[in-house]
Simulated scan of single mutants.
Amino acid sequence: MSAPSDEQPPAAPARPNLAYWRANLVVIVIMMIIWAVVSFGCSVFFVEQLNAWHIGSLPVGFWFGHQGAMYVFVVLVFAYALIMDQLDKKYGVKE
């Protein structure tokens, strides 16, 4: 039999941590919605309506399906990094 330990169980997470993770999840959900709308909406669901316009000689629906969605994804990655940097500073989270 082992001797009783004076160690206490870890404390429950503090409220600021919960607020930080909720803010993080909100950012992720918004980014995923934007990604889904651009990836599926612009290049699959609304392709016929977008093909009425052209970028250079390419229809916009085709352009979104082949290049535009990638550009939006790269912008989302940088936007997520900037937003999370601001949230880290707001909530005092350090790496």
Results as ranks from 00 to 15, higher is better:
residue 72 V to L: 05
residue 17 N to Q: 10
residue 20 Y to A: 04
residue 21 W to S: 02
residue 67 Q to E: 04
residue 27 V to W: 13
residue 32 M to Q: 10
residue 64 F to E: 00
residue 13 P to Y: 08
residue 23 A to Y: 02
residue 56 G to E: 04
residue 27 V to M: 13
residue 95 E to C: 00
residue 4 P to M: 07
residue 22 R to Y: 11
residue 79 A to S: 06
residue 93 V to M: 10
residue 10 P to C: 02
residue 8 Q to E: 09
residue 2 S to I: 03
residue 48 E to T: 07
residue 39 S to C: 03
residue 69 A to W: 07
residue 40 F to E: 11
residue 25 L to D: 10
residue 44 V to C: 03
residue 2 S to H: 15
residue 81 A to C: 03
residue 79 A to I: 10
residue 79 A to L: 09
residue 44 V to Q: 08
residue 20 Y to R: 10
residue 14 A to T: 05
residue 39 S to Y: 14
residue 42 C to W: 07
residue 61 G to P: 07
residue 34 I to E: 06
residue 50 L to Q: 03
residue 3 A to E: 15
residue 22 R to P: 01
residue 28 I to L: 15
residue 17 N to C: 01
residue 17 N to P: 00
residue 60 V to Q: 07
residue 11 A to H: 02
residue 40 F to H: 15
residue 59 P to V: 01
residue 33 I to G: 09
residue 11 A to N: 08
residue 44 V to F: 08
residue 56 G to I: 05
residue 79 A to T: 06
residue 14 A to C: 03
residue 40 F to D: 08
residue 90 K to G: 00
residue 73 F to K: 09
residue 57 S to V: 07
residue 31 M to D: 12
residue 91 Y to W: 10
residue 51 N to G: 08
residue 12 A to I: 00
residue 18 L to A: 06
residue 48 E to L: 02
residue 43 S to A: 15
residue 7 E to Y: 09
residue 78 F to H: 14
residue 78 F to E: 06
residue 38 V to K: 05
residue 51 N to M: 09
residue 48 E to D: 14
residue 84 M to S: 03
residue 39 S to N: 12
residue 15 R to P: 06
residue 44 V to A: 06
residue 9 P to C: 00
residue 77 V to H: 04
residue 84 M to I: 01
residue 87 L to Q: 09
residue 94 K to D: 02
residue 45 F to L: 14
